[in-house]
């Protein structure tokens, strides 16, 4: 069981308030991702849940029990750190067994669990190596192994993939998702990468300056961002945000239109512009259109190959039914 509730939690470092009063509930078995730009307080929030930092006020409940003043070891949570934080002087086996040893579990049970975890994570052949002799991906798996043997109420991941190269990152992303499906344990995952958030999460929590900007499923966030910050942060390439007279036509301060919701044509359309750089990804092509008179360059996503060249004249038409409208506070207009 792992339902985690944060009730008016705040955190101050000296005079600096990094987390203003914050409420959040994470349901049992949910894969929740905290996402936001660096310095948004997402790691601090995770460390508060872990018990590695004290809350300045408010309450943290784990399974309805007040855990606010419970030391990290007693909260029944396991954490995977950004640097993996493996014990360099211990073998893989001893690393994975460490939490069990601390729990004074008997040796036979420890062996069983360590070998079970190693089998799941493809680490069986490496059990007697030191972390220093492993690759980045293997170290990552040892860190996960150390977390799962405890059968914790919830897993906490602090940017676990940021030290891996791009190819491995995709593989580990799948492995962690797979693990979640199999264990059905609550997971809280911190990242600054919105792609990780979108692909893994059941629920995304977007944070900015310690404030929760929006909570919801990946699709909710994508389809109905609550404000311009979420609109710009979620989705790649970014949503086009347009202000000024063009937005006024829609009775809004700002309008947002995703790159895939714009139709391009060589003959006619609502907006006229000039083609800048085009990024060819094979399946998609992203065009960057300049001189539309709409402010910044407009990004358009097109299927497959297109025959617009640098400098060509181009006409764009947004799909009216998927235009996002925001007021002068940046909030969504329903």
């Amino acid at each position: 069981m792992g339902r985690i509730t944060l009730d008016k939690v705040t955190k101050r470092f000296g005079d600096v308030e990094v987390i203003p009063p914050l409420d959040l509930t994470i349901d049992d078995g949910e894969f929740t991702v905290f996402v936001g730009p660096s310095g948004c307080g997402k790691s601090t929030l995770l460390r508060l849940i872990a018990g590695l930092e004290d809350v300045s006020s408010g309450q943290i409940r784990i399974d309805r029990e007040d855990a606010t003043n419970v030391p990290p070891a007693k909260r029944g949570l396991a954490m995977v750190f950004q640097s993996y934080a493996l014990y360099p002087h211990m073998s893989v086996r001893k690393n994975i067994a460490f939490p069990l040893r601390m729990a004074k579990m008997d040796q036979a049970e420890i062996n069983k669990r360590v070998e079970g975890a190693a089998a799941v994570l493809n680490l069986t052949d490496y059990l007697d190596r030191r972390p220093g002799q492993l690759s980045g991906g293997q170290r990552q798996r040892v860190a996960i192994g150390r977390a799962i043997v405890r059968e914790p109420a919830a897993f906490l991941f602090d940017e676990p993939l940021s030290n891996l190269d791009a190819a491995l990152r995709v593989g580990m992303r799948l492995e962690i998702s797979e693990l979640h499906k199999r264990l059905e344990t609550t997971m809280i995952y911190v990242t600054h990468d919105q792609v990780e958030a979108m692909t893994m999460a059941d629920k995304i929590v977007v944070l900015r300056k310690g404030n929760i900007e929006q909570v919801g499923s990946p699709l909710e966030l994508y389809q109905t961002p609550r404000n311009t910050f979420v609109a710009g942060f979620i989705g790649s390439p970014k949503m086009n945000l347009i202000e000024g007279p063009e937005a006024a036509k829609y009775d809004a301060h700002t309008i947002g239109i995703r790159p895939e919701h714009i139709k391009a044509s060589a003959e006619a359309g609502a907006w006229e512009g000039r083609v800048g750089v085009s990024e060819h990804l094979g399946s998609d092509t992203f065009l960057h259109i300049h001189d539309t008179g709409l402010g910044e360059a407009i990004t358009v996503r097109m299927n497959g190959e297109v025959d617009f060249k640098y400098g060509d004249r181009i006409f764009l038409t947004p799909r009216a039914d998927v235009i996002h409208r925001f007021d002068d506070q940046g909030l969504r207009i329903a």
């Binding site: 954490m79 934080a85 493996l86 460490f98």
Partner: peptide, 11 residues
Amino acid sequence: EILEAARMDGA
């Protein structure tokens, strides 16, 4: 972080 990991591991 390594010491924090130990703390999380119940040490």
